[in-house]
């Protein structure tokens, strides 16, 4: 079995209103010194069998088309168990 992790984050320069809201809430709830919070998405994808190059390429493509919005987001794709 193969396990692939896809992490999606807003590009660094893009405003993250939700992250800002969380940052504000952390401060209000007593945590001092929070300088930045960025919020993203974390996908854990499990596949039967080995991750061959075709399926790896398909995953890479779909991470850009389905899992993230390449206009404003970056993604990283990590194979955990090959």
């Amino acid at each position: 079995m193969a396990r692939v992790i896809v992490d999606v984050m807003l590009k660094p320069e893009i405003l993250d209103p939700q992250g800002r809201a969380v940052q504000g809430a952390l401060g209000r709830l007593g945590l001092e010194g929070v300088t930045s919070v960025r919020q993203g998405k974390h996908f854990v994808i499990e596949l039967d069998g080995d991750l061959d190059s075709d399926r790896a390429a398909a995953l890479d493509r779909l991470a850009g088309e389905l899992l993230s919005n390449p206009v404003i987001e970056d993604f990283t794709l990590t194979v955990v168990d090959a």
Binding site: K11, E13, I14, L15, D16, P17, R20, V71, I72
Partner: peptide, 8 residues
Amino acid sequence: RPSVQVGD
């Protein structure tokens, strides 16, 4: 730099 503006 990105040209996409994000609203809040």
